[in-house]
Design a protein around this nucleic acid. Structure first.
Length: 263
DNA sequence: ATGTCTCTGTTACAGAGA
């Protein structure tokens, strides 16, 4: 089973790329973020025509997450429980009763010290509590999404520039990320590509800023992740980032991150 | 490195968010 997480930065704008991606890479499950559309606007039919079942949790203009799967999407649940949020940032579901997947779009946080930064940290706190609850289930878990956190120096093209004073890299964000892992999850791409002495790993960067022409300059960060519980870890066979999609026409600023599970 | 892309509200751009 190939599982992909992909922040598409508007599913409507990206639909031609998404359909091409499905045709060329044939993923079994795709976890989308930033669909940027109302739930009722999700184009279920174009995915169903290609053999996918669907679940969307959207809102107007911003955010929004969705799941498509070759198997049956069962018992979908939207929102992080106990976290009051008007923004559509989380959904989870079982796939054929065999695995549970989640699609999360962690708040960006704008800049340190802002209200959006405080909201990001509150979101992560509630998310951590939920990930702990999920571990009670005896099922392989795959939590994928745009975490808007570069976990360490190996995950940025220039650690001197992307330092503790910058959003995506600040100690409170990185500590929150490590707490998620400490619950009992692995960062699949990190495990598959261990960093030698913290040197940057451009082959698994996932995001290149439009504004600084980051793709053209090779200025990327790794902020999209796939977390696995121990049952999921035992099934992990392979994984990577489909970076070439970032070079397609009208690309998202994020590339798809994929893993293969022996399911 | 205040730059680029996408959205909305309104119908050629400004403002928000990333």
């Amino acid at each position: 089973m190939k599982i992909v997480t992909w922040n598409v930065n508007s599913l409507r704008a990206r639909l031609p790329s998404i359909l091409r991606y499905l045709d060329e890479y044939a993923p079994d499950v795709v976890l989308f973020q930033e669909i940027k559309m109302l739930t009722e606007m999700f184009p279920h039919d174009v995915f169903e025509e290609r053999g996918y079942s669907t679940h969307a949790f959207g809102q107007k203009t911003y955010n929004g997450v969705a799941i498509i799967a070759k198997g049956n999407i069962e018992d979908p649940q939207d929102n992080v429980p106990t976290f009051e949020d008007v923004q559509a940032r989380y959904t989870e579901a079982y796939i054929d009763g065999k695995v549970k997947v989640a699609s999360v779009y962690v708040p960006n946080g704008e800049d340190l010290g802002t209200e959006k930064y405080a909201y990001k940290l509150r979101f992560l706190e509630a998310f951590e509590s939920h990930l702990q609850d999920l571990l009670k289930e005896d099922v392989p878990l795959c939590i994928g999404g745009d975490f808007n956190i570069a976990p360490g120096d190996a995950d940025v093209y220039d650690p001197k520039r992307w330092n503790e004073k910058r959003i995506l890299c600040s100690p409170p964000e990185r500590e929150a990320y490590q707490r998620l892992l400490s619950l009992g999850y692995i960062d699949a791409l990190d495990v598959l590509n261990p960093s030698e002495d913290n040197t940057p790993r451009p082959e698994i960067f996932t995001w290149w800023d439009y504004r600084t022409r980051g793709w053209d300059r090779g200025h990327g960060l790794r902020i999209d992740h796939l977390l696995l519980n121990s049952q999921g870890h035992q099934l992990l066979k392979d994984g990577g980032v489909h970076r070439d999609i970032r070079g397609w026409e009208r690309p998202s600023d994020h590339g798809p991150v994929w893993i293969k599970l022996d399911v």
